[in-house]
Design a protein around this nucleic acid. Structure first.
Length: 915
RNA sequence: GGGCGGUUAGCUCAGUGGUAGAGCGGCUCGUUUACACCGAGUUGGUCGGGGGUUCGAAUCCCUCAUCGCCCACCA
């Protein structure tokens, strides 16, 4: 189209009227689409995710010559559905990956899921019981596992689909599952290697037994909870001294039949003389006294202060007692079945009873025997099974254990900064755990998992075979029925997910992002596995984020019903809105309180950006690759670009420290405040103005800032920015020729936007603009004082200072909604005024002004200013300050004082003219 | 019992030595052609208490209080 464009209409409705001057010939072709006023994310997000997938944007190339950046996803449970914690964690990872691509790295993000032994098995068992009234033992191992696999096929990719909705740029072609064939082979081989090295051994030890899941658990899977219970006191007779009784305090009277000693501290004067004698255990009562006779031993570990200072020792059912038993070679008497019921050893009265029932019964029995003394309320810590949420039972059983490899190396790696944990304080926690590390019980009495590659000879010879394949004469052997702890597979995750080629390019990985709750379960173990099996660290940086809590500070949980569904949030606010909203409040090192308001803010910001882009689009086509050096930039443009640069600098710093909320806030504040509230508002008059060069310069500025901002924001809000990038038609140097059209591969903007201007020119513009904007605020304040409607244009008078000469009156007028600004030399009498750095502003409102009120307002101002002056004078009057403070600080105070004094003079002057 | 972290506006939190900040909420005004998922203005704080270092402390040190978390075999 060549000619004069007066207006543009779409379907008969005027669309582009205000933006073009009728006398300016235009030459452009412009594909116009009507843009809706509010951003509607759903279609946009779906569309772009598909486009990225179709163009293979997430696929990492092992042959690439670009520097590598890699992350492995903390594999969510295959049973899982997305919760807010996943959203937080995976958004962070996505941001880092997308940023890396824009920095010119070859980024790989490996996704996958974890088979989650107990969790998955429990879910499937429950379903089986509900739907088919079957228990797993009814159908046998093989059939049961078929059910689990079936279930996994059906539900296993739910969480993966949800991650896609969130916009995660994982390389889905490399999705892994901890029970994949390759992966399983690695797990088994690992076991075999460690066994051969002597680090894995089998032994009968005290383990944490879960009577509900019927399996052993690692120490990490046990959660200590304070419980209100009772401390029971009962007495036992000393066998050698009939009539002498010892009173014992215990929380677990039901284990009395399992007691094989009484222990006292040898330093305890009350009891020391009894050491070596015997006591008569009251239960089971049917046993003859001779069989109830147990030794009284002396042990340093007995606390003289607690209870009566006499401890009953139950080596089979208490960890500490077991150790005392070891020290004194005590008999180990098991009185409990795996499911937590008492067995016949406990005696006829208790046999078959559930453990808590048995406790009550035992107390009754003691009473009947006259051995019961008293009970007291007592609070103690009881270990609960993390999964089943029932008290665990310390139990002696035959299990497989791992002596951790490379402990020292792993400790040093973090201590020496080879692996950095963010925030740093977690390094201490890590160090503490590593220093007190205990052998890891790795066998689980479950079916769902990697079966332990150990075979026992059927002939009872006790011969054990451990290997990655079954022994040749398999018929003579029986495989161990247990499986490995899930974490025994996940600790290999960073490298077991990679083939040789991938490892060469992408291992060690760059960053690992996870919650602090699995620092020991997973992170520490991965480090040790990394050093042991690859000879290298598995990752260089660990980002630890904290828990999301609700507005009341409670943990988010299904049972409390306070756990919002991220899919619902994404449907209502858009994935980008959820991502951004959450990132803005995701500080490190502290739990974050979630409130839907914050997600709403994310959505609002998306809408703000959408409309700012829409505003630009209405002014005509944008320059795909804006170039500021071709224009004479007005002051406001220089300022906003300088603000963009300093925002970008702060953003880089925030990224360096992995401070995502800082990064999000920096982006938010610049765009909403500097760009929209000030720059866009200031530039509006020039959009309709006569000066085409100026208009072009401003449009170029908008293009420059938008193009840069979209790139910087992209990692946080990938869909929306990609959409606007296309709509505005921007181009930038790309890091992938194949994906040149995608914002997601665009190079980041230059760090210096105005290299053609001198520092002085920039500082000058920024300073002047700041004064002008400050003055605008003061003027708006004055309008508001006099209740002038914000849409009403009024006349202002200005007694200018020299700086006014460099300001654009039209801009100022627009900012303060002035009909005219008339420059004057003398303060007019009887007129409300405000004192600013660009001059004294007067608001002539004849007849409306309450002079007395205005006088009071000005007097109040003067008082405030005088207080400031006094403060400043006191400061500068202090010799110690002037002598000791840095000269720059002193100069700053001097300048401040001068400004206050000038202001006071002006105010006084204006007050006088009121009459 | 050991360790770590928090305590700043009504709420959620920034702010690591130089004039106490943001968002939300509250209140007032406004539908002006980017945006009511909006704009303008305004109201909120002796920075948990006490002591110390310093010319100067929300910021560094000590101490107390309080809340939260992690670790630990007082039965």
């Amino acid at each position: 189209i060549r000619g004069k464009v007066l207006a543009v209409a779409i379907e008969g409705k005027p669309f582009l009227t205000g933006g073009l001057h009728p006398d300016i010939p235009c030459c452009f072709t412009y594909k116009m689409t009507e843009i809706s006023k509010a951003y509607e994310p759903q279609d946009v997000e779906e569309k772009w995710y598909q486009s990225w997938l179709e163009a293979d944007c997430f696929k990492a190339d092992t042959q690439s010559t670009k520097p590598a950046f890699s992350i492995v996803i903390p594999p969510p449970n295959v049973t899982g559905v997305l919760h807010l914690g996943h959203v937080l964690n995976n958004t962070m990872q996505d941001i880092l990956c997308r940023l890396a691509r824009m920095k010119g790295c070859e980024a790989l993000w490996i996704p996958g899921t974890d088979h989650a032994g107990i969790a998955t098995q429990t879910v499937v068992e429950r379903q089986l019981r509900k739907e088919k009234k079957l228990r797993r033992r009814d159908i046998g191992r093989e059939k049961f596992l078929e059910h689990v696999w079936e279930w996994k096929q059906k539900h296993g990719d739910i969480i993966i689909k949800q991650l896609k909705k969130l916009g995660c740029s994982c390389d889905w072609s490399r999705e892994r599952f901890t029970m994949d064939e390759d992966y399983s082979r690695t797990v088994i081989q690992t076991f075999v290697d460690l066994y051969k090295e002597g680090l894995i051994y089998r032994g009968k030890r005290m383990v944490n037994w879960c009577p509900a899941s019927l399996t052993a658990l690692s120490d990490e899977e046990v959660i200590m909870k304070p419980q209100k219970g009772l401390l029971y006191f009962f007495k036992v007779e000393v066998a050698e001294e009939p009539g002498t009784f010892l009173t014992i305090a215990t929380t677990r009277p039901e284990t009395i039949p399992g007691d094989t000693a009484i222990a006292v501290n040898p330093k305890d004067p009350r009891y020391a003389h009894l050491i070596g004698k015997h006591a008569l255990r009251p239960l089971p009562k049917e046993l003859p006294a001779e069989q109830r006779k147990i030794p009284i031993v002396g042990d340093e570990h007995i606390d003289l202060e607690f209870g009566t200072g006499v401890l009953k020792v139950t080596p089979a059912h208490d960890k500490a007692d077991f150790e005392i038993g070891q020290r004194h070679k005590l008999e180990v008497l098991e009185i409990m079945n795996p499911d937590g019921t008492l067995n016949e050893v406990a005696g006829a009265d208790l046999a078959g009873m559930e453990r808590f029932e048995a406790r009550k019964r035992a107390v009754e029995l003691l009473g009947e025997l006259g051995a019961f003394v008293k009970e007291e309320p007592h609070e103690n810590n009881v270990g609960f099974s993390e999964r089943a949420d029932v008290p665990i039972e310390p139990r002696l059983s035959e299990q497989w254990f791992l002596k951790y490899p490379k402990v020292k190396k792993s400790l040093d790696a973090v201590r020496d900064g080879d692996i950095k944990i963010h925030p740093e304080r977690w390094e201490k926690v890590y160090g503490h755990w590593m220093e007190n590390i205990q052998d890891w019980c790795i066998s689980r009495q479950l079916w769902w998992g990697h079966r332990i590659p150990a075979w026992y000879r059927k002939d009872g010879s006790g011969e054990i075979y451990v290997g990655s394949e079954a022994p040749a004469d398999a018929d003579n052997w029986e495989q161990d029925s247990d499986v490995l702890d899930t974490w025994f597979s996940s600790w290999l995750w960073p490298f077991a997910t990679m083939d040789e080629e991938t490892k060469k390019k992408f291992y060690p990985t760059s960053v690992l992002s996870t919650g602090f709750d699995i620092l020991f379960f997973w992170v520490a173990r991965m480090i040790m596995a990394g050093y042991r099996f690859t000879g290298e660290k598995p990752f260089s940086h660990v980002i630890i984020h904290n828990l999301i809590r609700d507005a009341q500070g409670r943990k988010l949980s299904k049972s409390l019903g306070n756990s919002p569904d991220p899919l619902d949030l994404m449907a209502r606010f858009g994935a980008d809105g959820v991502r951004f909203g959450l990132m803005r409040i995701a500080p490190q090192g502290q739990d974050l309180r979630y409130d839907e308001k914050q997600i709403e803010e994310g959505r609002n910001f998306a809408n703000k950006l959408w409309n700012a882009a829409r505003f630009r689009q209405m002014q005509g086509p944008s320059n795909p690759q804006p170039d500021l050096s071709k224009h004479t930039l007005p002051m406001d443009s220089i300022t906003v670009v300088a603000q963009f640069d300093s925002m970008y600098a702060r953003l880089r710093k925030a990224y360096e420290e992995y401070r995502f909320s800082e990064a999000a806030n920096v982006l938010y504040d610049f765009f909403w405040g500097d760009y929209c509230d000030w720059f866009l508002e200031a530039s509006k008059p020039d959009m309709q103005g006569e000066d085409s060069a100026k208009r072009a310069a401003i449009l170029e500025t908008m293009d420059y800032v938008l193009s840069g901002f979209l790139r910087l924001l992209h990692p946080f809000m990938p869909h929306l920015t990609e959409e606007l990038w296309e709509r505005l038609g921007f181009h930038a140097p790309t890091h992938s020729e194949k994906h040149a059209n995608f914002l997601m591969y665009a190079a980041l903007p230059a760090e210096q936007s105005l290299p053609h201007l001198s520092d002085a020119e920039i500082t000058d513009a920024v300073e002047t603009t700041r004064e002008l904007y400050e003055a605008a605020k003061a003027a708006r304040n004055l309008r508001s004082e006099y209740k002038i409607a914000s849409n009403k244009a009024v006349r202002f008078l200005l007694r200018p200072k020299p700086i006014w000469k460099t300001c654009d009156p039209a801009v100022f007028a627009a900012l303060i909604k002035a009909e005219t600004i008339e420059c004057i030399e003398e303060a007019p009498s009887g007129t409300p005024s405000v004192v600013t750095q660009i001059g004294d502003l007067f608001l002539p409102l004849e007849g409306i002004v309450d002079l007395e009120a205005e006088r009071q307002r000005l007097t109040g101002e003067i008082l405030k200013v005088e207080a400031e002056i006094l403060k400043a004078e006191a400061k500068l009057g202090s010799q110690t300050f002037v002598q000791n403070a840095p000269p720059a600080v002193v100069a700053e105070h001097r300048q401040r004082l001068e400004n206050w004094i000038t202001k006071r003079e002006s105010l006084k002057n204006n007050l006088e003219t009121l009459g």
